[in-house]
Computed example of a mutant assay.
Amino acid sequence: MAQRLRGERGMSTAEYAVGTLAAVAFAGLLLNVLTSGAVEETLQGLIQDALQ
């Protein structure tokens, strides 16, 4: 049984593909949120306040 379980470690190629796709989708969503007008204004305001 222990030998059979050792063979199941790690991800298969299909799991890598799904994981990569999910990571890219999340990165795209995060980029979209961070470059939206409201968030960009807020971040710029925080940076300007910190520099003053």
Rank of each mutant, 00 (worst) to 15 (best):
T20L: 10
L5S: 03
L34H: 01
A27F: 14
S36R: 03
G37Q: 05
A22E: 08
L51R: 12
Y16W: 15
S36M: 00
A14H: 11
G7M: 07
F26K: 08
E15W: 02
A17Q: 15
R4S: 08
Q52I: 06
L46P: 00
Y16T: 10
G19E: 10
R4P: 02
V18I: 12
E15K: 11
G28T: 09
V24D: 02
D49I: 00
G7W: 01
E8L: 14
A23E: 04
L21I: 06
A22R: 11
Q48G: 02
N32Q: 10
A25R: 10
E41C: 07
A23H: 00
G37L: 01
E40S: 15
V39P: 08
E40Q: 13
E40V: 11
A50K: 09
A27E: 10
R6A: 10
S36K: 01
Q3N: 05
S12C: 05
A50T: 07
G37M: 00
A27R: 05
L31E: 10
L29T: 14
M1H: 01
L21P: 02
N32T: 12
L34M: 13
A17P: 04
E40A: 15
G28F: 13
L29S: 13
L31H: 13
F26W: 09
F26H: 05
M1S: 03
R9H: 02
A38I: 01
A17K: 15
T35N: 11
S36E: 03
R9S: 03
L5T: 02
G45P: 02
L5Q: 08
T35W: 01
V24F: 10
T20I: 11
L29Q: 09
T35F: 01
F26R: 06
S36T: 04
L34I: 08
G19Q: 12
M11A: 11
A27N: 08
L46G: 10
Q44H: 04
A14C: 05
A38R: 03
Q44F: 06
L30C: 14
A14D: 15
A2G: 03
A22Q: 11
A2E: 02
L31C: 11
V33P: 02
R4D: 06
Q48C: 01
L30D: 09
T35I: 00
V39A: 12
I47L: 11
T13R: 13
G28M: 15
T20A: 10
A50M: 06
T13C: 07
V39Y: 12
A50F: 09
A25F: 12
E15S: 10
V33W: 09
A17L: 14
F26E: 08
A27Q: 09
T42V: 06
A23P: 01
A38L: 04
G37K: 07
V39D: 07
L34W: 08
A22L: 15
V33M: 06
T13H: 05
G10A: 05
L46K: 05
Q52M: 05
M11Y: 09
A2S: 00
L5A: 05
T20W: 03
G45K: 02
Q52K: 14
L34R: 04
L31M: 13
Y16G: 00
T35K: 05
Q3S: 08
V33E: 12
F26M: 13
G19L: 12
A14Q: 15
T13V: 11
G10W: 04
Q52A: 11
